[in-house]
C-alpha cells in the first residue's frame, strides 16, 4: 500500500505542474485588472498604471509565472495584489477554518448517512418511503436555504446557537464547537443524504447476495448478519462516494461560509476571483488540486483496505 502511495507521487507532481500552467494562463485570459480593483472606481488611469508597475503586472507573462513559482518553492507566497494582505496568513487562516468546517461536516455526514442509510435499507413500506423522502430532501435543499432556515430556528427563534462567527478550535473548544455546529450541520446535510441513499441501495443489493441467504440459513441473527456481513460489503462503493462528497463539501463551503460568517478559504477564493487577485487565486487553486490528489489516493487506499477483492497494483509477472 505504501509503495502504491509512493508511486502516485510523480504523477501527482506532474498534474500539479500542468495545473499551475493552466491556472496561470486561464486567469490571464479571463481579462480584468487587479490594479483597477485595488485603485477603486474613481482612480485615474495614471494611478492604475503606477499600481500595475508596482505589482509587477507589467512584466512579461513568463517572468510573472517563474516569479510565482520561485515564491512557492522558497515559501514566500507574497502579498494579495488587491488588499495587500500577506498571502501566507490569508491562506493559512482560511485553510485552517475550512478544514475544521469540512472535517466536522464530514464526520456529521458519515454519522447521519450511516444511520439513515441503514434504517432505510432495513425498513419497508410507508416508513421506507418517508425516510427515502427525507434523504432526498436533505440532498435537494440548497445549503443557502437550509442555512438561513437553521439560523431562523436555532438562532433567531430559540437563540441556542450563535448566528455566525468563528473561534479557533484550540483556543476555546467549548465555544468554538458552538460556532461550528450550525455551519457543519448545514454543510453535512446534502452529503448525508447522498451517503444514505447510496448506502441503502448498496445494502439492498448485498442483501440479495447468496452469502447473505446462506448466513440466514445457518441461523445467524439478522442484526449480526446486517452489521458483520451486509454492511462491510456495502461500504466500499459508499466510501468512493464519500471521497467525492468531501471534495464537493470543500467547494460547497463557499456558500456556507458566507451565510455563517465563517472565515474559510471559500469566501477568500470568491472575493479573489471577482477581483482577479492572481497570486491568491493561483495558490488557492493549486492547493485545491493537491487536496483532490491526496483525497483520491486516500480513497483508493481506504477502498482497498475495506475490500480485499480490490488490488491497488497489478501482481508482478
Amino acid at each position: 500500500m505504501l509503495r502504491y502511495a509512493l508511486r502516485r507521487i510523480p504523477s501527482g507532481l506532474l498534474i500539479l505542474a500542468v495545473a499551475s500552467v493552466v491556472i496561470f494562463l486561464l486567469l490571464r485570459a479571463t481579462g480584468g485588472d487587479p490594479a483597477a480593483v485595488k485603485a477603486g472606481s474613481d482612480a485615474s488611469p495614471d494611478t492604475i498604471a503606477a499600481i500595475r508597475v508596482a505589482l509587477g503586472l507589467d512584466l512579461p507573462l513568463p517572468v510573472q509565472y517563474f516569479r510565482w513559482l520561485t515564491g512557492l518553492f522558497t515559501g514566500d507566497l507574497g502579498y494579495s495584489l488587491v488588499t495587500g494582505a500577506p498571502l501566507a496568513s490569508l491562506i493559512g487562516n482560511g485553510l485552517q477554518a475550512t478544514f475544521v468546517l469540512t472535517f466536522a461536516a464530514s464526520v456529521l455526514a458519515v454519522c447521519m448517512g450511516l444511520v439513515l442509510g441503514i434504517v432505510i435499507a432495513v425498513s419497508s413500506g410507508a416508513g421506507r418511503s418517508v425516510l427515502d423522502g427525507l434523504a432526498s430532501m436533505m440532498l435537494a435543499v440548497p445549503t443557502y436555504v437550509s442555512g438561513v432556515l437553521l439560523i431562523l430556528v436555532l438562532s433567531v427563534t430559540f437563540n441556542v446557537l450563535p448566528v455566525g462567527g468563528y473561534r479557533p478550535i484550540l483556543q476555546d473548544p467549548q465555544i468554538a464547537m458552538q460556532y461550528l455546529a450550525m455551519p457543519a450541520l448545514c454543510l453535512a446535510l446534502p452529503a448525508a443524504g447522498v451517503l444514505a441513499r447510496f448506502l441503502a441501495t448498496s445494502m439492498r443489493q448485498v442483501m440479495d447476495e447468496d452469502f447473505v441467504r446462506t448466513g440466514m440459513a445457518k441461523g445467524l441473527s439478522q442484526g449480526r448478519l446486517l452489521m458483520r456481513h451486509v454492511l462491510p460489503n456495502a461500504l466500499p462503493p459508499v466510501f468512493t462516494v464519500l471521497g467525492i462528497q468531501i471534495g464537493q463539501m470543500l467547494g460547497g463551503a463557499i456558500v456556507v461560509e458566507a451565510i455563517f460568517a465563517w472565515p474559510g478559504i471559500g469566501s477568500v477564493l470568491a472575493n479573489a476571483t471577482l477581483a482577479r487577485d492572481y497570486y491568491l487565486i493561483q495558490n488557492l487553486l493549486l492547493i485545491a488540486v493537491s487536496v483532490f490528489i491526496v483525497i483520491q489516493i486516500v480513497t483508493d487506499l481506504a477502498h482497498a483496505a475495506l475490500d480485499s477483492r480490490v488490488r491497488l497494483e497489478q501482481p508482478s509477472p
Binding site: 464526520v107 456529521l108 454519522c111 447521519m112 450511516l114 444511520v115 441503514i118 434504517v119 435499507a121 432495513v122 425498513s123 419497508s124 416508513g127 442483501m207 440479495d208 447473505v212 441467504r213 440466514m216 441473527s221 439478522q222 442484526g223 449480526r224 448478519l225 446486517l226 452489521m227 451486509v230
Partner: peptide, 25 residues
C-alpha cells in the same frame, strides 16, 4: 424472492450500535 430484513428484527446489540452512531452524530 427478494430477501428483506425488517427493522423490527434488528437485535439489541445492533440497535446499541445504531444508537451510538446517532449519539455521535
Amino acid at each position: 424472492k427478494k430477501l428483506t430484513i425488517p427493522s423490527t428484527t434488528i437485535t439489541s446489540s445492533s440497535r446499541r450500535q445504531l444508537l451510538m452512531g446517532s449519539a455521535g452524530a
